[in-house]
C-alpha cells in the first residue's frame, strides 16, 4: 500500500504540488495521466522516495518495488551490454552477491521467458528494436519478484502494435501474478481496466475509476 498524506512539493521557482492525498491499495492497477510538464514523473519520484516532500508524508508498505525509468543507458545506442546482463541488474541490491551466479541465471532466464525474449539473452542491446528493449526493461523489473512495478511512460518511442502488446502484457502481469502496477500513460484508453486513474493537473491529483470517461487532461 502507498499513501500520500497532505503532500506538498516545491521547486526553487514555484510550487508543483499542494496538499495532495491519495492511497493505492495492494495489488491495484493504477494509471497516472496528465499533460506534459504537469509533474507526473515528480509524483512518481515522491512515491518512490527518490525526492522528499516539502510538507506531508509518504507512507510505503510495499515489500519490493521495481522502477522502470523513462531514460536509461538503453537510450544510448553504443551502450555495451547483453540482454541477460541488463535483466540481472534487477537482482542487484545493497550487498554484493558474487557466488550465486547459478541461481541468478535461472531467475534471469525465467524473467526472459515470461517476457518471451529468452532467445535474445546473449544479444547486445544495441542490436534490438524499440519494442524488444521495452520487454528487456520489464524483464529487469520482474526478475526480482516485485510486489509493485512503477513505470514512467514505458511506451515512449513505441509503434502502435508494440504499445498495445505492452499494455496487454502489463495487465496480464497484474491479473495472473497479482503484481500491483503504477504507470504513466498518455493514452486514456490504456486505462480502461485500471482500478484507478490519477489525473495530475494544476498542482493537484484527482482520482477517477478506470474507464471513467469524465477525465479531462
Amino acid at each position: 500500500m502507498i499513501e500520500l498524506k497532505n503532500v506538498s512539493f516545491s521547486f526553487e521557482d514555484g510550487v508543483l504540488f499542494q496538499d495532495v492525498s491519495f492511497r493505492v491499495e495492494d495489488g491495484q492497477f493504477v494509471g497516472i495521466i496528465g499533460a506534459n510538464g504537469a509533474g507526473k514523473t515528480t509524483l512518481i519520484r515522491l512515491i518512490l522516495g527518490l525526492i522528499k516532500p516539502s510538507k506531508g508524508e509518504v507512507v510505503n508498505t510495499e515489500k519490493k518495488i521495481a522502477y522502470v525509468s523513462q531514460t536509461t543507458s538503453l537510450n544510448d545506442s553504443s551502450f555495451p551490454a547483453t540482454v541477460e546482463e541488463i535483466v540481472s541488474l534487477g537482482l542487484v541490491g545493497a550487498k554484493p552477491s558474487l557466488f550465486h551466479w547459478k541461481e541468478e541465471k535461472e531467475r534471469v532466464n525465467a524473467a526472459l521467458e515470461k517476457m518471451d525474449i529468452l532467445p535474445l539473452r546473449k544479444r547486445v542491446v544495441s542490436e534490438l528494436s524499440g519494442g524488444q528493449l521495452q520487454r528487456v526493461k520489464i524483464a529487469k523489473a520482474l526478475v526480482g519478484d516485485p510486489s509493485l512495478i512503477v513505470l514512467d511512460e514505458p511506451d515512449a518511442g513505441m509503434d502502435h502494435d508494440s504499445h498495445e502488446k505492452l499494455v496487454e502484457g502489463l495487465l496480464s502481469l497484474h491479473k495472473d501474478h497479482g503484481i500491483a502496477v503504477l504507470f504513466i500513460s498518455h493514452h486514456l484508453h490504456d486505462l480502461e481496466s485500471a482500478d484507478q486513474i490519477l489525473l495530475v493537473k494544476d498542482g493537484s491529483v484527482t482520482r477517477y475509476q478506470g474507464g471513467d470517461h469524465h477525465v479531462e487532461l
Partner: peptide
C-alpha cells in the same frame, strides 16, 4: 553497472 544503467532504478533497488 546498475548505477551507470540508471541511478534512480538502482536506488529504488
Amino acid at each position: 553497472f546498475a548505477i551507470i544503467y540508471n541511478d534512480s532504478e538502482a536506488k529504488v533497488g
